[in-house]
């Protein structure tokens, strides 16, 4: 388990990361969401020990994290880069060896991952011959080599085609199911919503929301959709515990201010005529995101 407590980093006058606390639970995929400049990359670099922190603490399995722990993490930096002139497999073996694997073990592991990502036949090519998406897959393999004890991945999905996204998701799930914490950042909210167990949302250097997708949803306002046979204009004047958000023709969306008051609204609607639909509105992650980062 990886825990951040009050982690802070300033660049001059700018607080890039300000009092950030969250945890990355073992065995779960934690999505790290936020706009450009929100502080995700800086947070990940501090977690990897690449940047010093001005304040705060990072704990690994309950004790302060040490360099020897971070060396066993799998890391994928934000900006993609490998040695362009070196062959894919040689490069992966090199990085594997730097992580303490033997050359043979690194080769076996790298070859396996390359095959799963559809790059098995390109292992002997130079990196510069590969498309950007494929180069990225090579970087992902670099992060996965040698049974890392945690995965810290900065934008692993950007630039991948849908098949690669699926393969990648499978790999991440597999590693999480080994019982290790996996933290990855992404801009693709729909993707995060689909595959993440937990979420951390950052804005302007601070954590603005965290929890499971369900928790974040339930923390948001409760809304109901009402679809009638006739005109729904009367809902605008129905002020008993609900607040009209949007009324248009025969449809109305209301926000429940007192729990249970939606029942009174339904009763009133049935009294007035046929009701075609009455349902809880589940907010999309993008809506929650817009709300918490606003």
């Amino acid at each position: 388990m990886l825990q951040l407590h009050g982690v802070t980093r300033r660049f001059g006058d700018l607080s890039a990361v300000d009092d950030v606390s969250f945890e990355v639970t073992d065995g779960l995929l934690t999505g790290f969401v936020g706009g450009n400049g929100a502080g995700k990359t800086t947070t990940m670099r501090m977690t990897m020990g690449l940047l010093a922190r001005d304040a705060g603490e990072i704990r690994w399995n309950g004790r302060p994290i040490e360099v020897s722990d971070q060396r066993r993490f799998g890391y994928m930096p934000e900006e993609r880069g490998l040695y362009p002139k070196q062959r894919v497999i040689d490069q992966l073996v090199y990085l594997g060896e730097l992580h303490g694997l033997t050359a043979a073990a690194a080769r076996t592991s790298a070859t396996g991952y390359l095959e799963r990502l559809g790059l098995g036949d390109r292992a002997k090519e130079r990196v510069e011959k590969l498309s950007l998406g494929n180069q990225q897959k090579v970087q992902i393999v670099a992060a996965l080599l040698g049974e890392p004890v945690a995965l810290i991945l900065d934008e692993p999905f950007s630039g991948l085609d849908p098949d690669a996204v699926d393969a990648m998701t499978g790999l991440l799930r597999e590693h999480a199911s080994r019982g290790i914490p996996v933290l990855f950042s992404s801009h693709q909210l729909d993707l995060v919503e689909r595959i993440c167990d937990r979420l951390v949302i950052m804005a302007r250097g601070r954590v603005v929301a965290r929890g499971t997708v369900a928790e974040l949803r339930s923390a948001g306002p409760t809304r109901y959709l009402l679809e009638l046979a006739g005109d729904a204009g009367w809902v605008r004047d129905f002020h008993r515990g609900v607040h009209p958000v949007d009324v248009d023709g025969s449809r109305a969306v209301v926000q429940v201010e007192q729990p249970g008051s939606e029942q009174a609204l339904l009763t009133e609607a049935v009294r007035r005529g046929p009701v075609h639909e009455f349902a809880r509105v589940v907010p999309a992650l993008s809506e929650i995101y817009r709300e918490v980062t606003a």
């Binding site: 690449l50 060396r71 993490f73 880069g81 730097l98 992580h99 970087q139 992060a143």
Partner: peptide, 17 residues
């Protein structure tokens, strides 16, 4: 500078001093 520019140095620095 090539390592620095391509950011592979981040991967290397996360693995060795």
């Amino acid at each position: 500078v090539e390592e620095k520019q391509s950011r592979i140095v981040e991967i290397i620095a996360s693995a060795i001093p």
